[in-house]
């Protein structure tokens, strides 16, 4: 049984149909990459999984349980974390407060915190700073750290490398590899060079439909398919 499965998901935003027919399955463990051009429907797919936009018709199942109609908070409590494209950090709260907020009982496990600080050392240095004062890369680290401060089965991450310096992108990649040892990551990414090093399985969305699904190794080896589906040579 797959960890997450989307079946014929169609999502409308106001009067616009954004997802027409999205179906794919995410197996447990590793990184699953969702690729596609700008405006193809990748972010809408993640938001639909989180219940921030309700799919109709279509269904989304997590560990076999239908989560289509559930409230976002109930979906999160099943063990799904979300790192949005805009990072969604709370600027007036401190780094530590941002992390505490992501825990179910308001207390951070010290071993876990140590691990998170190991992945993102800047967060330990600036733990009492208000989050708005962090740099773009540090904000992204905080956003990811918040998603992993407690064990989660599935982490949805939306374009985490956008606008970041190459050194931070590399550090982020290292962190994702380590996180994926114990959790499953569903990664939306436009930076194919970054995604190809991390992904095990992948799918491509175009115009609200899944147009290709398979392994990353196969897709990375097929330049013609990349050009056709992503519209550019990488």
């Amino acid at each position: 049984m797959s960890l997450l499965s989307l079946n014929n998901v169609k999502t409308n935003i106001d009067q616009y149909a954004v997802l027409h027919d999205v179906s794919f399955e995410v197996a447990e463990g590793g990184v699953f990459v969702l690729l596609g051009r700008n405006g193809a429907g990748k972010t809408t797919t993640l938001r639909s999984i989180m219940g921030l936009w309700k799919p109709s018709p279509g269904s989304i199942a997590f560990r076999g349980q239908d989560i289509t109609g559930l409230h976002t908070a109930d979906i999160a409590r099943l063990g799904i974390a979300y790192v949005p494209e805009n990072m969604g950090i709370f600027g007036t709260l401190t780094v530590d407060e941002n992390l505490v907020l992501a825990t179910a009982k308001g207390k951070i496990d010290s071993t876990r915190l140590k691990w998170v600080h190991g992945l993102f050392p800047a967060l330990e240095k600036f733990r009492d700073k208000q989050a708005w004062s962090l740099s773009g890369g540090q904000k992204q680290m905080l956003s990811v750290a918040r998603a992993i401060i407690e064990p989660r089965e599935l982490i949805l991450i939306d374009e985490p490398t956008k606008g970041l310096a190459p050194s931070i992108v590399e550090a982020m990649g290292e962190a994702f590899r380590e996180i994926a040892e114990n959790s499953t990551i569903l990664l939306v990414e436009q930076n194919f060079n970054f995604a190809r090093k991390l992904g095990r399985d992948m799918a491509v969305i175009d115009d609200g439909k899944v147009v290709h699904a398979g392994t990353m190794a196969e897709f990375a080896a097929n330049q013609e398919l990349q050009d056709k589906l992503l519209g550019l040579s990488m």
């Binding site: 921030l52 976002t72 908070a73 999160a76 409590r77 979300y82 969604g88 709370f90 007036t92 505490v100």
Partner: peptide, 24 residues
């Protein structure tokens, strides 16, 4: 207090608080 933390966070970004598992 924790509820205060949630309220302050909710003022900033309600959607994100819900994505962390809280019913705003």
């Amino acid at each position: 207090t924790r509820i205060g933390l949630l309220i302050r966070a909710g003022v900033e970004d309600r959607e994100m608080v819900e994505s962390l598992g809280f019913r705003v």
